[in-house]
Write a protein that binds this DNA or RNA. Structure first.
Length: 291
DNA sequence: CACTTGACCTGTCCGC
DNA sequence: TGCGGACAGGTCAAGT
């Protein structure tokens, strides 16, 4: 669920709350999720917050950056004076802000705090020298992404031309390709499922079997669902919350994701099928998504 | 090289 | 009621 729209929503809010403030103290409560030296970030001022694919980067004024991947259930929640009217915290904030799933707490100079929760402990935070960001394994291999014009991401932009090149060069199933962060970054299971339904393309189609028109339709569909996700502030189906403690709303707009067994609202001739494709739960309409 | 499976974790839900 | 199993989706490593 944390895909481009979710992580972008986090980036947008953190960019409002954090820059200009100094990290006074870092409390690590579960050391496995934190890699690097706390001394590299304590007493440093936060300059900016960026996003590359599904990764958040927090740049400090001392030449270091924090690199954060929240994977499936990570949560970054801010509480402090920069939140003028603090909204009520979502009940999805697992275990609260000092509970069993709170693994790292960053205390700021203005009594504000940034809490990192992660029920499943898949996510990670690393300290890296800012000029060596590109050497972080995950960032090193990251492919171009959609909507860089909207999100101001400095990740390479995925043009339609590049998209055609990428899809045309492999027989892998189109859905698996869309979720391969090394080829295209930011798209995960939910938006891949919805975009394929919107584009009327079967998720198991070999990528290089798509016609020019289909490829363009898919490209536009991905842009559309990602934009819709962004507009709604992300999808809070599982554990996603925004740093102000509130939930996103895209889960109310799911097109095909999560609708296995229900009637397809477009053709009304078939029920959505749930099937594992490459190990991931996938939903599609067997009637109107062409094989 | 392409592709699949299992590992990493824990909470929730469903059927017996 | 309790218990086992499937499932949730992001990546990496190992296996076919």
């Amino acid at each position: 669920m944390p895909e481009l729209p979710e992580v972008e929503s986090i980036k947008l809010q953190l960019s409002k709350f954090l820059p200009g403030h100094t990290i006074e103290e870092v409390e690590i409560r579960y050391s496995k999720c934190f890699e690097g030296d706390v001394e590299n970030i304590e007493e440093a001022e936060i300059k900016s917050v960026r996003r590359f694919g599904k990764v958040i980067v927090i740049d400090l004024d001392n030449g270091y950056s924090l690199v954060i991947h929240i994977k499936l259930t990570g949560q970054l929640v801010y509480r402090g004076p920069n939140l003028r009217k603090a909204p009520q915290l979502s009940r999805k904030i697992t275990g609260g802000l000092r509970g069993p799933h709170t693994h790292v707490i960053f205390r700021l100079d203005d009594r504000g705090s940034l809490y990192y929760n992660d029920v499943r402990k898949f996510g990670w935070i690393k300290t890296v020298k800012s000029d060596q960001l590109k050497e972080v394994n995950f960032l090193r291999t990251l492919g171009p992404e959609f909507l860089t014009d909207v999100t101001k991401s400095s990740q390479e932009h995925l043009t339609l031309e590049k998209f055609k090149k990428i899809t045309g060069s492999t027989k892998r199933s189109i859905k698996t390709l869309l979720m391969d962060q090394g080829k295209i970054s930011g798209v995960g299971n939910i938006y891949a499922i919805d975009a394929l339904w919107l584009a009327k393309i079967h998720p198991e189609r070999p990528a290089d079997s798509l016609s020019g028109a289909e490829t363009k339709r898919l490209y536009k569909s991905i842009e559309k669902v990602l934009k819709e996700g962004l507009k709604m502030g992300g999808a809070s189906e599982l554990a996603f919350v925004r740093p102000d403690g509130t939930e996103g709303g895209y889960q109310k707009n799911f097109l095909a994701y999560g609708r296995g067994g229900k009637m397809c609202p477009r053709c009304k001739k078939a029920k959505f099928v749930y099937k594992k494709i490459a190990g991931r739960g996938t939903v599609f309409c067997p009637n109107c998504q062409s094989v």
